[in-house]
Design a binder for these strands. Structure first.
Length: 491
RNA sequence: GCCCCCGUCGUCUAGAGGCCCAGGACGCCACCCUUUCAAGGUGGAGAUCGCGGGUUCGAAUCCCGCCGGGGGCACCA
C-alpha cells in the first residue's frame, strides 16, 4: 500500500507554525515511504474566507521546501482539490446518508438552536442539539418546507452504545454515543461542514494517514461514525499535540512570531526551521540534533512521535539557525543575505564585496538579518556615525590627546605597509601596542571604532583588507580629526 | 457542567522492569583560546522522573487513585 498524506488547511489566515509542523510530519511520512503528499484547500466556510489565504499557505510550504505532488495549482488524479469546487460530491454523499437512514433534514432556525443552547446551559447541561427534527412526521416536514426555511443535513448519531476511535499515537479512545449529538453535515448554504467534507475527500482521494492537530480529538468519534455509515475503512489517524508558547498557552501573536513566514522575514533558514520543527515531538535518537532533510526522510516515522505538547523554544531555534548559517556554502549564504543588506541600503549590494565579507561574518550571525548590523560599514561611503567616547574606549577615556597620538602612530605604520594584506597590516601595528605601553586590545579597539564605527566587528585587519587602503586611511583621518577637535575642546 | 488528551532538568527530549542515585541538546555559570564580537574547547550547576498508593527481589518504565496543565462541546475548521 502506498502512503498518501495530505495537508488540508482552511484559507482563513496566516499559516501557523503548528500547521507547518503538521504539514512537515505528513510530508516526511509520505516521503519516507515513497508515497504521495497532496494539498487540499478546505474553504467551506464562506464567512471566514480570506482572499490571500491559499496563496499564503502555498508560499509557506514552498518556503520550507514541502513539495506537494497534487494540489489545486498542479492538479492530480483526484481534482479538484479545492472543496468549494466539490459541492456536488458532498451533496450526493449527504443524500446517500439520508437514503441509508444515517442522516436527516433539520429545519431548526439558528434562533431556536440558540434558545435550546441557552436553556441547557442554564440547567448546567452540556450544550447539544435536542434532535427536534430527527423524527418529524411527513406532515411536519411538509409544513416546515412550506415555511420556506432551508434545511441542514444532520447525522443520525446512535443514541446509545459506544464508538471506538483509533489513533496510532494514543491507541483506542472510547466515546459514549450518548455524549455525542446530531452534528451538521451539510449547511443550509449548500456547503458541507468539515465532518462531512474531510471524511468524504480523504476517502475519495485515497488518504492513508491523516495527521492533524489534537484539537480534533474530541470530534474523532463523529468521523469514525461517518466512515461507518458509508461503509468505508477509515484511514490511520494521528493527532499531533499542540505547540505552546513559553507560558504554556497555545502559541499565538502574543508570543512574537507565530506565523511561519514571519521567520523568513527575520532571517531564519528553511532548513533550520524544518530541522527544529521536526524535533518538536519527534526525535531521531538520544543525541542527534542537527539533521538534514535526507536523514529526516530516511528516519522519520510515526513510532517516535510524542503526544505531549511542546513549548516552543525560541533560543534553541536561534542557535540552530546559527549552526545552519555556519555550515552553509559561502555563495549560498551570500545569495540569502544579500536581500537583507539591499533592503537596508536601499540599493543592490556589490556581489564581489559581499563574497569577501561572508567568511568574516559567517560565524558571527545567527540570523540573516544580523549581517546588516555586522557589516553595513563595508558598504557605506562618507562619514561613519559614532561617539567619540566609543573611540576612546576605557583606556583613553578622558584623554583624547593620548588616543590621537596612538592613532597617528598606527596610521603612520599602516601607510608604510607595502601591499594591503591583513597579515602585513597586523605585523605592522601589533608591536606598537607594547611600545605605547597599552594592551593590544586597547590599541586595536581605537582602530576598530575608527574604521568601522562599532565596538563589535569582524577581525580588525581582515576588515581593513577588505575595506582597502584608501577607505581605511580615510576613516582613520576622520577619526584623527574628531580626536583633534575633542582635545582642543578639552583644553 | 460534560467529554477527551497530556504530565522526565527552565525548555526540547532519550528512556519501552535491572545498563538510570536518569543520558543528550538549547539556555545559564566558570575556565581556556583571543584584537572586539562571535565561533570553538573543557568543566559545572540544574530532574525527590506531577503526587500518593500498589504489583515486583527490583519501577521513570506496569496497575489504581488524586492533583496539575491543555483542548473540545457551532449551519468554524
Amino acid at each position: 500500500m502506498t502512503v498518501r498524506t495530505r495537508y488540508a488547511p482552511s484559507p482563513t489566515g496566516e499559516p501557523h507554525l503548528g500547521n507547518m509542523r503538521t504539514a512537515l510530519f505528513s510530508w516526511l511520512l509520505a516521503r519516507h515511504y515513497g508515497g504521495q503528499f497532496f494539498l487540499r484547500i478546505e474553504d467551506t466556510d464562506q464567512a471566514r474566507y480570506v482572499e490571500s489565504g491559499i496563496e499564503a499557505q502555498m508560499e509557506a510550504l514552498h518556503w520550507l521546501g514541502l513539495t506537494w505532488d497534487e494540489g489545486p495549482d498542479v492538479g492530480g488524479p483526484y481534482a479538484p482539490y479545492t472543496q468549494s469546487e466539490r459541492l456536488e460530491t458532498y451533496r450526493e454523499h449527504a443524500q446517500k446518508l439520508i437514503a441509508g437512514d444515517h442522516a436527516y433534514l433539520c429545519y431548526c432556525s439558528p434562533e431556536r438552536l440558540e434558545e435550546v443552547r441557552k436553556a441547557q446551559q442554564a440547567r448546567k447541561e452540556p450544550p447539544r442539539y435536542d434532535r427536534h427534527c430527527r423524527d418529524l412526521s411527513p406532515e411536519e416536514r411538509r409544513a416546515a418546507e412550506a415555511q420556506g426555511s432551508r434545511p441542514v443535513v444532520r447525522f443520525k448519531t446512535p443514541l446509545d452504545g459506544e464508538t471506538v476511535a483509533h489513533d496510532v499515537l494514543r491507541g483506542s479512545v472510547v466515546f459514549q454515543n450518548e455524549t455525542l449529538d446530531d452534528f451538521v453535515l451539510l449547511k443550509s448554504d449548500g456547503y458541507p461542514t468539515y465532518h462531512l467534507a474531510a471524511q468524504v475527500d480523504d476517502h475519495l482521494m485515497g488518504t492513508t494517514h491523516v495527521l492533524r492537530g489534537e484539537e480534533w480529538l474530541p470530534s474523532v468519534p463523529r468521523h469514525f461514525l461517518v466512515y461507518q455509515a458509508f461503509g468505508w475503512e477509515p484511514p490511520v489517524f494521528a493527532h499531533l499535540s499542540r505547540i505552546l508558547g513559553p507560558d504554556r498557552s497555545k502559541l499565538s501573536k502574543r508570543h512574537g512570531a507565530h506565523a511561519a513566514l514571519d521567520y523568513r522575514e527575520q532571517g531564519y533558514l528553511p532548513d533550520a526551521v524544518v530541522n527544529f520543527l521536526a524535533l518538536l515531538g519527534w526525535s531521531l535518537d538520544d543525541h542527534t540534533e542537527i539533521i538534514d532533510r535526507e536523514t529526516l526522510i530516511r528516519h522519520f516515522d510515526l513510532d517516535r512521535v510524542l503526544t505531549n505538547p511542546a513549548v516552543f523554544n525560541a533560543e534553541k531555534l536561534l542557535w540552530m539557525n546559527g549552526v545552519y548559517i555556519r555550515e552553509m556554502p559561502d555563495d549560498r549564504l551570500a545569495d540569502d543575505a544579500a536581500p537583507f543588506l539591499g533592503r537596508h541600503l536601499g540599493r543592490p549590494v556589490d556581489r564581489e564585496l559581499l563574497m569577501g565579507i561572508i567568511p568574516l561574518v559567517k560565524e558571527r550571525i545567527k540570523l540573516l538579518g544580523e549581517i546588516v548590523d555586522m557589516a553595513d560599514f563595508f558598504f557605506t561611503d562618507g562619514e561613519l556615525e559614532y561617539d567619540v567616547e566609543a573611540l576612546l574606549g576605557k583606556r583613553y577615556a578622558g584623554d583624547p590627546a593620548a588616543a590621537l597620538k596612538a592613532l597617528e602612530a598606527a596610521t603612520e605604520r599602516l601607510e608604510a605597509v607595502d601591499g594591503w594584506e591583513h597579515e602585513k597590516l597586523e605585523s605592522a601595528v601589533r608591536p606598537l601596542a607594547e611600545e605605547l605601553g597599552v594592551k593590544t586590545g586597547e590599541l586595536f579597539g581605537v582602530l576598530r571604532v575608527a574604521v568601522t564605527g562599532k565596538t563589535a566587528t569582524p577581525p580588525l585587519f581582515e576588515t581593513m583588507e577588505i575595506l582597502a587602503r584608501e577607505r581605511t586611511l580615510d576613516r582613520l583621518r576622520s577619526a584623527r580629526e574628531r580626536l583633534q577637535a575633542q582635545s582642543t575642546h578639552a583644553k
